[in-house]
Every structure is written in C-alpha cells, then in structure tokens.
Amino acid sequence: MTEATMAVTTAQAPAAPAARRLLIASARWRWWEFAVWIAAFAAIVLLPRQLLLLNEIAILALFALSLDLILGYAGIVSLGHAAFFGLGAYAAGLIAKFGYGDPLLGLLGAAGCAAVLGFATSFLLLRGSDLTRLMVTLGIALMLQELANRESWLTGGADGLQGVTMAPVLGRFDFDIFGRTAYVYSLCVLLVLFLLARRVVHSPFGLSLRAVKLNPLRARAVGISVNVRLVAIYTMSAAYAGVAGALSAQTTQYVSLDVFDFIRSADVMLVLVLGGVGYLYGGILGALIFKAMQDYLSSVTAQYWQFWIGLVLVILVLVGRDRIGALFSRITVPFSRGARS
C-alpha cells in the first residue's frame, strides 16, 4: 500500500465523530417504537376478548414484514408471496400431524422448507423486469396450490389438512380457546424476528440492499455482488413468510388450500402498502388497519367487505402513497427530535 492512500486512512478525520453519530442515529430506537411493543403486550391483559383477532394480526404482520424485506428493502415486487406462507403452513401442519407436536420444532421446520424454496426460486428473479418477476412469483404460488390440491393423500386436498394437534409451547403453555397462548406465542415470535430484521436492515448488508434497490448499476460499480445479496434477502424473506404460515397452521390447527391463493398474496401486499413500505413497521400498522377494517366491514356487509378494501387501494394509489407516507412522518418526526439522518 502506498503513502498516498495510507494517508487517507490513518489520519483521524475531524468529521469522523459526527459521521459516526449520523450513521448510528438512523438505527436508534424511537419513542414510538417502544410504545408499539408495549401496547402489543399490554393488549394481552387489556383486550382479553380480542386475542384471537390479535393473533391473526400478529401473524399477518409477520407475513407483511417478510414482504417488506424484499419489496421495501430490495425492490422486488412479488405477486406470489403466499407460496412461502402456504409452504410453511403445510410444513408445520404436517410436522405436527406426524407426531412432532412441539410448536418451535414446527416453526424451524417451516422456516427451513420455505427458505429452501425461496433460495431455489430466487435465482429465477435475478433476470428480467418487474413484470417477469410478478409472473414468476405468481406462477410458483399457483403451482404449489395445484400440487397441494393434487397430492391430497398428504395435504388433504380441497378438504384441508386436518388432525393437526399441537403440544404445549415450551412444554408448558397449552393452546386455549380464547387464543391467549396463541397470541402471546405469535407475538413473541414476531418480536424476535422483528428485532432480527431490524438489525439486518441497519447493518452494512442492509445498507447494501438499499443501494441495490435505489441503483443496481451503481451498486455493482462499488463492487457489490447484487445477485448474491438479492438471493440472501429473498431466502430470509421466504423463511419469515414460512414462519408466519406455520404460526397460522399451529394456532388454528388447520391448513386449507387457500393459503396459496392469489388473493392472499394480493392482501399481504395491500397490508404492507397500507402501513407503508420500507420502514419495517408498515407490516404491523397495515395488519392492524386491515384486520380492523375486515372485522368491522364483514360485520356490516358480510361477504362484500372486499369492495371497501379495493376502494381503499384505489384511493391510496390515486392520492399517492408517498404523500400519505410524508404526512405520517410529519406527525411522528417532531416527537423523535428530528432524529432522521
């Protein structure tokens, strides 16, 4: 190494401390983040009658979080994310059905299966446009649905997978009919995976993903192996979706073919967009809004609630997602003392 380049590194640059503060600041916990999690856990005591619904929200939030990892942080548009949710659900359901009722074991198995599928299919997404990606992801989900339908000896086909019986969580907490164990269990899984995701997106790896999303050409020109990074995050996202599917299978003790539905893939995208893409809490917020809407609307108009969901989507796009996002950050930023870097 020559003197000229050495000189650049060894001298402690006066701006270095400020630079460190700026970089670290973007990863600092904001007050409202604590509030979100405190509220989520407080709900166990405060909303004892809503625990089944809250469990669904937690699972949907995890599913949307997994989509956020690829859509918000890597720019991959997927119309078939249900493939991983569904695979995870069937994997966990089958593991339990064949006698291994420990929930955590099921989660691991589901995450593993989904990760393998995600890894294998991620290579199909490296080439091609948004449209090709949409079609390939959609195609894979539909193929799995056909497969699950056909192999009914294993999956129960159109009748769904029945006979899923779960052992107590950690050998102590039995699943109850009020959904108390289910919600606490799902929420804890969500929290752990959320913390991991938060770490990842604020890591050097996460920074490189943002770069790939913003400008793949330049990302390559600073020496980033774009394909390797995309494969990695897609695999991780698939595992997350698989865990969400597993939670759903374990807490409802049932899996049906519609886990692979196009509607499910579309819904999760809607959930994420409702909550906002690319800041990790979008999935949680979106799941809350979506399930609350679904719960309220289907009590009012039964099977037609999808109309209103569609209307929300249309309005959201017409008004502009970024404008709504800007409004939201205007509300939160002043309270976090302008911490945005």
Partner: peptide, 8 residues
C-alpha cells in the same frame, strides 16, 4: 458488505 449482524 455481507455483515448483517452489526450496525452500519
């Protein structure tokens, strides 16, 4: 670039 476990 691949270190996902520590903060940037």
């Amino acid at each position: 670039g691949r270190e996902w476990w520590r903060l940037a």
